[in-house]
């Protein structure tokens, strides 16, 4: 008969050390009484009780944001094309800002203050208005720029 771990394609790593798990549990119990349930210390303790494969998943989930490089590469809207409209994050009119920095999301063309959208995208990867994945074809974008660069080099070389 195959074991639980064989059936589920996991390793018995965490069970090989029941003493360690017991210590983590009692530490968790102590801290739980002192801290709020959402305290990061508690959450990381809980995460350390997960099998390593699941820990990886967990890490992926808590880090859904876009890279800084992607955020920096978002296309700016030229000053004369900035609409007379509100940024849907801060509710301020784009044009009321003396030095507006407005970007347009490549996938859906929704516009935001750069400052507002960069904080959101650092921990999320969807457009706040339409929920489209903003970095859906980010990789493709980078590839084409590189191709264009190479072409340019060819022309001047």
């Amino acid at each position: 008969m195959s074991s639980y771990h064989e059936e589920h394609n996991t390793s018995p790593h965490t069970q090989s050390n029941p003493q360690g798990r017991r210590e983590i549990r009692s530490e968790f119990r102590n801290l739980y009484e002192q801290l709020t349930p959402t305290d990061p210390t508690l959450i990381s303790l809980l995460a350390s009780l997960l099998p390593p494969e699941l820990q990886e998943e967990w890490g992926k989930k808590s880090n859904e944001g876009c890279s800084q490089a992607f955020i920096d590469s978002l296309p700016r809207v030229p000053k004369d094309k900035i609409p007379n409209d509100l940024c849907s994050i801060c509710f301020e009119n784009f044009r009321e800002d003396e030095y507006p920095l407005v970007i347009e999301l490549p996938h859906c063309s929704h516009k935001f203050d750069l400052q507002c959208i960069s904080v959101w995208l650092s921990s999320n990867s969807t457009c706040p208005v339409c929920r489209d994945k903003v970095n859906h074809n980010a990789k493709l974008d980078i590839d084409t720029t590189e191709a264009e660069l190479e072409e340019d080099w060819g022309m001047y070389g």
């Binding site: 994050i89 509710f91 706040p128 929920r131």
Partner: peptide, 10 residues
């Protein structure tokens, strides 16, 4: 109020 929050809501 959870995973589907968006900053455009008020």
């Amino acid at each position: 109020l959870d995973t589907n929050w968006s900053p455009v809501f008020n």
